[in-house]
């Protein structure tokens, strides 16, 4: 069964073969450098140290945030 994860507000479908087990796998799949981001899964902040052990499930909403220039 395919999964849908809402990533930064946009639903993305993952076929069984490509479903990320943990948050760290998702970041790898998206080619995002872990050191540069902070994540929320269903509104809960996930510290970077927990990216490997945070397991994902179908239907979750994931926010990936980083620092940018600002005043």
């Amino acid at each position: 069964m395919s999964w849908t994860l809402k990533i930064n507000g946009i639903p993305q479908t993952f076929e069984p073969s490509e479903q990320p087990a943990a948050l760290a796998d998702l970041l790898k799949h998206l080619q995002i450098d872990q050191a540069a981001v902070v994540a929320e899964v269903d509104g809960q902040i996930v510290p970077r140290a927990d990216f490997e052990k945070t397991l994902l499930q179908d239907g979750q909403s994931i926010e990936l945030i980083r620092f940018v220039g600002g005043g």
Binding site: N8, L30, V37, L64, I65, R66, F67, V68, G69, G70
Partner: peptide, 9 residues
């Protein structure tokens, strides 16, 4: 100062 924004996937 810096700001936070969503990563551009």
């Amino acid at each position: 100062t810096v700001a936070l924004r969503r990563v551009d996937i």
